Simulated scan of single mutants.
Amino acid sequence: MQKVAIFQHADGEWIGSMRHWFADKPFQLTTYRLDQNDPLPSVAEFDWLLIMGGPMSTYDETNYPWLIGEKQLIREAIEADKTLLGICLGSQLIASALGAKVYPNTQQEIGWYPVSKTDLEATWMPEDLQPLSWHGDCFELPENTCSFAHSVITPSQGFYYGKRIWALQFHLEVEPGTVEAFLALESHPMPKTDYVQNESTLMNNADQLKQSQQAMFALLDVLYRESDSN
């Protein structure tokens, strides 16, 4: 039985469709609500670490002091050769833990926008992927990592470090209800810019939900094979 720690940072930003992938496999899942000051586990308490999204920025340690301990534990998990998957804020936290700069992008990217694959190692990723992006920050590429995708306004939509650590800016875990949950987290009206879709476009997503789940499950299959090989 492999143990999975899930770091959740906001209501509605849990593992989404991933729960179906884990359901029929020998995993024990434990969720830690860092935004509610749940105590962090030790690195010995998990085999996998899933780091989910949230409305905060990884560099906003003044308002969210628990980010300091979280990034330290991510560093320890990387050094301990754990399996890590970071999504949106989670990807930025992995980048920061590896010493890279995380900073505000030129504009927000919110919507179902094409992401172009740039590295053949991302075997799980289809060439025509159009996932849900919902972020205002981006990151510089950490040392010894490989970027695998970009979009028009985001230079790196993700990277991998070794074979068992993947960081994704976009949300492959989406399922029915995810967009509504994300909209509920927005504290301000959505900006009217070229890369922020309106609500009706965001909701018209049946095809993208299916494609995202297929890609999400394919990536989890890759991580499962790699973690099972040791």
Rank of each mutant, 00 (worst) to 15 (best):
M1A: 10
A5T: 12
Q8H: 09
H9I: 09
A10S: 12
G12C: 07
E13K: 06
M18L: 15
W21S: 01
F22H: 06
A23P: 12
A23E: 13
P26E: 10
P26T: 04
N37F: 03
L40Q: 01
S42T: 09
A44T: 06
A44L: 01
D47C: 01
G53H: 02
P55M: 06
S57R: 07
E61K: 07
T62I: 12
P65S: 10
I68H: 11
G69I: 12
E70V: 14
K71D: 15
Q72D: 15
L73I: 14
L73W: 13
K82M: 14
Q92H: 15
I94C: 05
A95I: 08
L98C: 05
L98W: 06
G99V: 03
Y103A: 02
P104H: 03
N105T: 01
W112D: 00
P114T: 05
P114Q: 00
P114F: 02
L120T: 09
L129P: 11
Q130P: 05
P131V: 06
L132R: 02
H135W: 06
G136R: 11
E143Q: 11
T145I: 07
S147C: 10
F148M: 01
I153D: 08
P155C: 10
G158C: 14
R164E: 14
I165A: 13
L168W: 13
Q169A: 15
Q169P: 11
F170Q: 06
H171E: 10
L172Q: 10
E175R: 06
E180F: 10
E180R: 07
A181I: 05
L185C: 10
S187A: 09
S187T: 11
Y195L: 09
E199G: 02
S200L: 14
S200P: 02
T201Q: 11
T201Y: 05
T201P: 01
T201F: 04
L202Q: 06
L202D: 03
N204M: 07
N204V: 06
D207H: 13
D207N: 11
Q208W: 10
L209P: 00
L209S: 05
Q211H: 07
Q214P: 03
A215F: 10
F217S: 03
F217L: 00
A218M: 04
A218D: 09
L220P: 03
L220Q: 01
D221V: 04
Y224T: 00
Y224G: 00
Y224V: 00
D228C: 04
N230H: 08
